[in-house]
Design a protein around this nucleic acid. Sequence first.
DNA 1: GCCATGGCTAGTA
DNA 2: GCCATGGCTAGTA
Length: 103
Amino acid sequence: MKGHETFTEAVVRLLKSVPEGKVTTYGQIAALAGNPQAARRVVRVLCSLSEREGLPWHRVINSKGGVSLTGEGRKLQLGLLRKEGIRLGADGRMNLQRFQWRP
DNA sequence: GCCATGGCTAGTA
DNA sequence: GCCATGGCTAGTA
């Protein structure tokens, strides 16, 4: 969290810098934005601003390396990740060591 | 009250 | 599985 920007602004900025082929977690973004406790606020930002800001929402996964969405959203997210070369193992998780974004 | 979280603990197998 | 967490929403009063 640099300077005067708000938590939400920091989250947007950070999300936009996650490159193709890499993933981040709700908690990682919250921590980098200055509040490690606010993983759920990151979810709020994703829900409300993904479309308008063009956020790479599909690159955000949970701390276990799994996709948290259900139903259609889940299918869409898995498809988008797959196009970037990321897929889940039989246990429904991906290798975070390999795919997690490191700023 | 709900939830696209996360971390920690009991308690099975 | 439990609970701290944070912000929004449906649905009463």
